[in-house]
């Protein structure tokens, strides 16, 4: 009885807190969405508003005019996101699993080798040098895929911690006694047990690839290879540039068309909506008890 009441209290409390929290997350987003449908002059005169005083599709119409570029960039982004996430998950789990094994010799130095990369980096110039001069990646799709994103120490350690805490060593032992090799154990037992973390890291990597504009900014000059975020972020960067070089921006004020407020919002919307659509796919694996079920089955 007591327990029931407690459980109900938890549900009520939980919903209340989470609803408030969700509102804080959703409202700004709705504002953004509404603004993308608002007439520009209205935005500049009276600011952003949830209820457009004057509805306008101009921003999207403008995007539609550029649809060949935008569609191509969508294609590139999707390709890079899917391939990148797949490679990245494979490499991350392959590195994370061995160093999670308490019996593996040298696992501490290995973990340190991974961890160290998160604290120090050589900076942009040397990285650029390595990828363009040692490996000729400039203006290739690989430049969007490989530098910086493919594997990061953070995910490896996250995965390692998950393996360490949720895979019972006993299962591995018994599999070994049954004669399974290490690699087989990894694929047949460890990975299926780790769907929640794979989904989490897959989600993070997916978002990272989807949202990445930096590689494009650095390694790509060919407009045919621009990813979606690349196109979007260039516009934002153009605005930021103006304040850094007053002389030139005075010179260029006639040549430069700054994107309007609603347009800025519209490009955010078309960039974010696909992630929201893909989210349920990852969520499928966020199910309690999946681990235990797999072991028993």
């Amino acid at each position: 009885m007591n327990h029931n009441r407690e459980a109900r209290a938890w549900q009520w409390g939980g919903h209340t807190v989470l609803l408030i929290y969700s509102a804080a997350c959703i409202l700004p987003f709705l504002l953004l969405f509404a603004s993308s449908f608002t007439d520009d002059k209205v935005i500049m005169q009276s600011g952003y508003s949830f209820f457009p005083e004057k509805f306008s599709l101009d921003a999207y119409r403008y995007l539609w005019n550029e649809s060949t570029d935008i569609l191509r960039s969508y294609g590139i982004t999707i390709l890079i996101t899917v391939a990148g996430t797949a490679f990245s998950l494979a490499m991350t789990s392959m590195l994370g699993y061995p160093i999670s094994r308490r019996d593996l010799p040298y696992r501490h130095p290995l973990a340190f080798y991974v961890f160290f990369t998160m604290l120090f980096n050589g900076g942009l110039v040397p990285t650029y040098f390595v990828y363009t001069q040692v490996f000729d990646l400039k203006n290739t799709l690989a430049a969007l895929l490989i530098p910086g994103l493919l594997l990061n120490g953070f995910n490896v350690l996250l995965m390692r911690t998950f393996f360490m805490t949720t895979i019972p060593p006993a299962i591995l032992e018994s599999a070994k006694i049954d004669g399974a090799g290490e690699i087989r154990i990894f694929y047949k037992i460890v990975l299926p047990l780790s769907l929640p973390i794979l989904a989490t890291i897959g989600l993070f990597q997916g978002i990272a690839y989807w949202n990445d504009w930096f590689n494009g900014l650095i390694y790509i000059t060919n407009p045919k290879l621009f990813s979606l975020q690349n196109i979007l972020n260039r516009i934002m960067l153009d605005i930021q540039f103006l304040s850094t070089d007053p002389a030139l921006s005075a010179q260029a004020s006639g040549s430069m068309d700054l994107p309007t407020a609603s347009f800025r919002m519209a490009i955010v919307v078309i960039g974010v909506v696909p992630i929201l659509l893909a989210y349920p796919f990852f969520q499928k694996y966020f199910v309690k008890g999946i681990a235990i079920g797999a072991v028993k089955g």
Binding site: V125, L217, I218, T221, R234, F241
Partner: peptide, 15 residues
């Protein structure tokens, strides 16, 4: 693109 100019041109010259 001008927003990318200073970074990209600098990197191109640097390497």
């Amino acid at each position: 693109s001008i927003g990318a100019w200073s970074q990209q041109s600098n990197l191109m010259l640097t390497s």
